[in-house]
Every structure is written in structure tokens, then in C-alpha cells.
Amino acid sequence: MVDKAGVVYDLGYKPYEGQRLGRSGAIKAMLKDGLRRTFGIRRKARRKIYPWGLVVLAFLPAIVFVGLAFALSSFAPDAESPFGGHAQYISLVGTVIILFVASAAPNLLIPDREEGVLSVYSSRPMTAWDYIWGRVGALALVASAFFLLPNLLMYVGFAALDEAGLAAALIDNLDDLLKVLGTMVAYVIGYGAPALLISTYAKRVGPAAGIYLAVVFISPGFAEMFRTLDFPGSRFGTLIAVLQHPEVIRNWVFDESQGSVPMSAVGFEPWVSILFIALVGAGTMYLMARRYRLEL
């Protein structure tokens, strides 16, 4: 039988006398690890398929839209873009963010707990809060990139087609970019926080992702049911539509119609959705701190 335990070679031991980056170095290392983990970098090939597939899904339409707009502009310079603007594109990247955080949040949190890696963090210059910020930061960074970069591509691409010239168009349309940034915060927290919350307590990655997707996509159905019920306070039940709070904010920011969104239909103003997202975000951080303080 082959001895797989290996052989010990005494090549000596060198004490480390170089620079130590301390707590900030630890958090930076966590952020970098989080990015690698979410994209499957330095992992087996099958871990890369899903996240990189979502990258293609997020960027490809933007590239196609801008490319087709270039093509159309050559023979119909005054034609309106048939693909809509940022508000419409945000609907698409919103779905991509949901699909992304459904996988990324459990992968960031659950293996550390279930494989015992938290004990390594507990012997490094960091606190439970440092760990939480490291993981939440990585998720927020990547989700923001999913949201922002395709919109940035469209912003610059359409500005390049503008008759006023690139620079003038970029400045003229700056408010679009600010709206995208504001909406991005709502989408990243609104969709990311529930995924983190579920992953804080779930024991396995697959079920955590499944529960999250079920919560997000089924909750509007329940909200719709509450909208049609007629008992005191039933309108508050519409607020469980996790999927639609960021959409309410997007519609409000881009002056779009709220359509048949349940919470708007029962008279809730957009600030209620902002408050809901803020509370879910703060509650998630609180519960994560409680959970991780026991192990870090």
C-alpha cells in the first residue's frame, strides 16, 4: 500500500521578521478570498461555470445593445434606442444579482462554519465584526460590480453615439449615472441581506440557495394575496415582497410607473421600501454579529 502521509524533510525553519499588516491586512485578505471564492478562482473548474455564466448574462445584453445602437445610428441617426435605458436594464441585472447572491452568500459563509475554518480566523488578529465586514464587503463589491459595470458600459456607449459628443453627453447624462448608483445600493442591500441572513443559519450551501430563491420569488405571490385580503392591517403583509422593494425604488428614482406592485397598490410610498431595506440590512448585520460572536 502506498504511504500517502508523506515524508518529513528537515529543511529548517525560518522565523518571519518582515512587515506585519495587522488587522487591515487580515480584512484585505478576506476581501480577496471572498472575490476568489465567489468567482471560483483557484478552485476546481466546475466552481467557475455558474458565476462566470452570470457575468456573461449581465454584460452580454449591454454589449449587444450598445453594438446594435452603433449599427442603427449609422443609417438612422435620429432613431430612439429600441432597447430602453438604464431603468429597463436594471430589471435584467436585478435578476442576475438575485441569481448571483443565491450562490455567493452561502458559499462565502457556510463552508467556513461547516468545515471548521472559523477556528483559523479565531487565531488571527481580527474580531467577529472584522470577519463579518470581510464577507459582507466581498459580496457587496461583486454584486455592485454586476449592477454597475454593464450600466456604465451603456452610459459610455450611448454617450459616444450622442450628436453632442462624448464628453458633453457624459456630463448631460450624469444624473442617469447618479440614479443608477442610488438604485444600486437598494438592489445590493435589498437582495444581498436576505441571502446573508439565510446563509448565517443554514448548514448547507444548496438548501440555503434554494430557500433564498424561494423566499425571493414566492414572496410577491403572498404579498399579492395580502393585497386582496380585507382585514385590518392586511396591507402590511404586502411588505413581505422581498423581490419588489428594490423595484419600487427603481421606479421611483427613474420616474417609472409602479404598475401593479402590491405595496404601491395598497398605498405605501417608496420611502417605506427604503425603510424596509434598511431594516432588513441592519437586522441581518445584528443577527450575524450575534451568531459569529459565539465562534470568533
Binding site: Y16, R20, L21, A29
Partner: peptide
């Protein structure tokens, strides 16, 4: 990664 977490540069 364990070394980086302890503050050792990459």
C-alpha cells in the same frame, strides 16, 4: 491565506 490573515504580505 492563513499567513495573510495574520498580516503577512501576500
Amino acid at each position: 491565506y492563513a499567513a495573510e490573515l495574520a498580516g503577512v504580505p501576500p
